[in-house]
């Protein structure tokens, strides 16, 4: 299993990576911005994507649209964002996100949500 994490906060990404690896959820790849994320999605075809909303180059919402509409993939996507404004949440789900977590978040909870989505595959 391959999991892609995109967030521009490198310390946080490192922590999530630590946690998910520890739980043996799979190989973790990371992207610091939307452009890198798109490239990795295309090349690596991850089994699950965890992404922030506000990122350089492409927003998390654009990433969802890219995966669902352009690549036509059903890869599970979890949005992990500092802003949980209703409109953004709704828009994310409308575009095809599978889950939404607002920061501050619990890494343990994220790990469980990731596991659950991976098990469904």
């Amino acid at each position: 299993m391959k999991i892609l994490i995109c967030d521009d906060d490198s310390a946080l990404v490192s922590m999530i990576r630590f946690k998910l690896s520890r739980e043996n959820l799979g190989e973790i790849i990371k992207a610091a911005d939307g452009r890198e994320a798109r490239k990795l999605i295309e090349q690596e075809r991850p089994d699950l994507i965890v992404t922030d909303v506000h990122m350089p180059f492409h927003t998390g919402l654009e990433i969802i649209a890219y995966v669902r509409q352009e690549l036509r993939l059903q890869t599970p996507i979890i949005i992990l964002s500092a802003e949980g404004l209703e409109e953004t949440v709704l828009q994310a789900f409308n575009l095809g996100a599978n889950d939404f977590l607002s920061k501050p978040f619990s890494p343990a909870e994220l790990a469980i949500r990731v596991r659950r989505l991976l098990q469904k595959l």
């Binding site: 939307g34 492409h58 927003t59 802003e83 404004l85």
Partner: peptide
């Protein structure tokens, strides 16, 4: 335009 769309604001 793409870069304007990804500006941080809600």
């Amino acid at each position: 335009v793409k870069s304007l769309l990804s500006l941080s604001y809600n």
